[in-house]
Design a protein around this nucleic acid. Structure first.
Length: 713
RNA sequence: GAGCUUGUAGUUCAGUGGAAGAAUGUCGGUCUGCGGAACCGAUGGUCGGGGGUUCAAAUCCCCCCAAGCUCGCCA
């Protein structure tokens, strides 16, 4: 009807000699009851005309010419120095009733049909979502959890639009961090000191301690290279060491600052500007470096106090070896994959951690189709092949130290943009892109190179239309740097369809998280704490149902826990960083997740008492055509498909989260305004159908958010 | 220093060229009802600032300000 009316008005406008078309909109709140639709008149008025006069005469003409319109009247709003003029249209009540009744029937049937929430639009196409991919050296914490929930929810959304979705977890089991953690693990095994908590929580402590040793050794080594006379021991920084290091950096920074001052006095050319920029960058880097030493001294002290037993044993053992040397020895062996005992040591640690992850993820209702080991990618030789191919390219430099450096010349980048028809807005980096180092001087591949190999593995193995990498916005640059190498390797489909699904980091209100210091709230703690609070809230409200079994109570508490934990991580724009206020999230009144569950339970409560007997077609839907709350619910239910598509195109699952929340709110109002069970028979039947559809709508929405709907709460 | 992201009600956020919105907070109401974890009302805004494009800008462009992130033989 909106469309019909729109075209009728546009027809009229054409006949009246107007050049532009209009688009109908819903009328603003304050005019509810007086009109249903509105459109803006300003664009129709020529510069010299008064839009209000145009609107006045046009209103009359619309009323005369279009029988559907009962009344048409102009209204105006001041906005700054301008005045916006609208024509508001009141539809003939009988026509409107018919239209709305039809709308209700169609929407109800659609929602209640079997395939609601499962489109076949992308049938037969495959997409891959890679998410979580947390390093297997520390527990999953609430920071990782945003990645997990976004990835899992987005995968569910893609599935609802018909894609066959594969969910992959990339295990970074080769790399510095795991290298020294494995060494610590080996010490502890020899000393027969076994985990006294869940494995990933335990290994997180081991990692933090070993990392502090490794970092201090690195700091001291670097200091010696710079001829700073630091003390002999490998793993301790004395107060005098700190002073000497600090003095060195202060001198160095001052030197560069002087240089900058001198440059500033020179002519302000592009070259000098670039030099200044470079030097400033150096200053920043030096400042960061100079703080490192002090930071690690503090970290070591805190770790020693918090985990004394682990700390002492690890320290005792690490003193006997050169940790940096041993780490590279282990890593080299593991990368080659020939040493069986090394392989099994790395895999043992990794697999224990991953199985701990799986347990945690399962509680959050998250499953995967594949866990891909970085070591497998390395062992099959593909990173090396990629290096060989890229080395032949003109824009790849071969350096004296035996490393290869991939550069990003402007012409090549532009060529790629053009050929792949990349949308300029989707390009996250303007200007120069830093070079990418492909190998270490020992010839082994660096992480980005392996990422190229892994990307190709995903495309070649499964032939997906798209691959979404759910990775935080910190990694925008390295993710973007993947594309040109792929393009130049002739992998155009991959270069165009490898998509970085970006999201902002999570901060905790009043606390700092740091994996290196083993300071974080783990996903397990967050879940447990929420569930405990849910149990307490339930007890406080005397909400024990008489016939409730233990299993049912568990089911209810699980639903509340998932709603409370998953919802706040998904309900805002992924681009925005979020600050988790645990007190707020754990307060069920202020967290929208449980509110939605409650709405669903209320709907279920009504349907336990009564269900519609007559079919949808047997009811005269005009009786609800003027029921505002019903119309609101129906209109919202009808937008679901569109929201799904928006969520996919914008890579923004919060659109579904807010849809659920709005639906729950609208239902609460509906519930208060329309007594159902006591209503007259016809109305009661009609209202019950609305409740039935709404219940299904909420349940469908929630399942896409990975939250089970429950019938009681 | 350069680039990216963010900036809207006390707070948390919607709002991608057309009439400034919700939740929460605060204050005040509804209560023996289909489940009060609810509903209704009031309160609260130079949309970070300034310029430009447009009949029309929170929205597009430019400059500035603030916060965060990134710029490694780490991943």
């Amino acid at each position: 009807m909106q469309k019909k009316l729109e075209s009728q008005i546009n027809e009229l406008l054409k006949n009246e000699g107007f050049k532009k078309n209009i688009r109908l909109d819903h009328v603003i709140k304050s005019l509810h009851g007086k009109a249903e639709f509105a459109f803006i008149v300003n664009p129709l008025a020529e510069r010299s005309d008064d839009p209000f006069l145009v609107a006045k005469s046009l209103s009359q003409k619309i009323m005369d010419a279009i029988p559907l319109v009962q009344n048409a009247f102009p209204s105006e709003t001041k906005k700054g120095k301008h005045t916006l003029v609208f024509i508001n249209l009141k539809i003939n009540p009988e026509e409107l009733k018919k239209y709305r009744a039809g709308n209700i029937v169609n929407t109800l049937k659609d929602v209640l049909s079997e395939n609601f929430g499962q489109s076949s639009k992308n049938m037969g196409k495959i997409v891959i979502v890679e998410h979580t991919s947390a390093n297997p050296i520390a527990p999953i914490h609430v920071g990782n959890l945003r990645n997990t929930i976004h990835g899992d929810t987005f995968a569910r959304i893609l599935k609802a639009t018909g894609y066959e979705v594969r969910r992959h977890f990339y295990i970074n089991d080769v790399g510095l961090q795991i290298g020294f953690t494995v060494i610590g693990y080996e010490f502890l095994k020899k000393e027969k000191l076994y985990p006294d908590v869940k494995f990933d929580h335990w290994i997180g402590k081991v990692y933090a301690i070993m990392n502090s040793f490794y970092s201090i050794q690195t700091i001291k080594q670097n200091a010696r290279k710079k001829d700073i006379p630091v003390s002999k021991s490998r793993y301790t920084l004395t107060a005098t060491d700190l002073k000497k290091i600090d003095a060195y950096y202060t001198d160095k920074i001052n030197e560069i600052k002087k240089e900058v001052e001198n440059l500033k006095k020179e002519k302000n050319t592009k070259a000098t500007k670039q030099k200044i920029s470079k030097l400033n960058r150096q200053i920043n880097k030096l400042k960061e470096e100079s703080k490192e030493a002090e930071k690690y001294v503090a970290t070591v002290n805190s770790l020693k106090i918090r985990f004394p037993e682990l700390f002492d044993i690890l320290k005792k053992n690490v003193k006997k070896i050169d940790l940096i040397a041993k780490t590279s020895e282990y890593l080299e062996k593991y990368e080659k994959g020939n040493d069986k005992s090394i392989n099994s040591l790395f895999r043992e640690l990794t697999d224990w951690t991953i199985s701990a992850f799986k347990w945690t993820l399962k509680r959050y209702n998250v499953d995967f189709d594949a866990f891909d080991y970085e070591s497998d990618i390395t062992w099959n030789g593909s990173p090396k092949k990629i290096v060989d191919k890229l080395a032949k390219l003109e824009n790849t430099l071969s350096l004296h130290d035996g490393t290869y450096r991939f550069t990003y010349p402007k012409q090549l980048i532009n060529k790629m943009y053009q050929e792949l028809k990349l949308d300029k807005k989707s390009i996250p980096i303007k200007g120069d892109i830093p070079d990418l180092q492909l190998t270490r001087s020992d010839g082994t591949a660096l992480y980005p190179t392996k990422d190229i190999a892994y990307s190709l593995y995903k495309f070649h193995q499964f032939n997906p239309e798209k691959v979404y990498n759910v990775i935080s916005d910190e990694q925008t640059l390295p993710q973007f740097q993947l594309l040109l190498p792929l393009y130049l390797l002739g992998e155009k489909h991959a270069a165009k369809n490898l998509i970085h699904y970006r999201y902002g980091l999570v901060e905790l209100l009043g606390r700092k998280m740091s994996g290196r210091q083993a300071i974080y709230i783990t996903a397990d703690e967050y879940y447990d704490e929420t569930k405990i609070r849910a149990r307490m809230a339930k007890k406080a409200a005397f909400k024990q149902f008489e016939d409730e079994t233990w299993e049912e109570e568990e089911k209810l508490l699980t639903a509340v826990t998932l709603a409370s934990t998953r919802f706040p991580l998904i309900d805002t724009d992924p681009n925005k960083k979020i600050v988790l206020d645990l007190d707020r999230e754990l307060d069920f009144k202020r967290n929208p997740g449980p509110f939605i569950l409650y709405a669903h339970a209320r709907a279920a409560g009504i349907l336990r008492k009564a269900v519609p007997r007559r079919s949808i077609d047997e009811i005269d839907w005009k009786i609800l055509a003027e029921n505002k709350e019903t119309i609101d619910i129906i209109d919202l239910l009808a937008t679901f498909e569109q929201r799904l598509m928006d969520a996919v195109n914008d890579m923004n699952p919060s659109k579904i989260a807010s849809w659920c929340y709005e639906l729950a709110q609208k239902f609460m109002k509906f519930y208060e305004q329309n007594p159902i069970l006591s209503a007259e028979e016809q109305t009661k039947e009609a209202l019950l159908w609305v409740v039935t559809a709404l219940k299904k709508g909420i349940a469908t929405g929630l399942s896409i958010l990975g939250i089970p709907a429950v019938d009681r709460l």
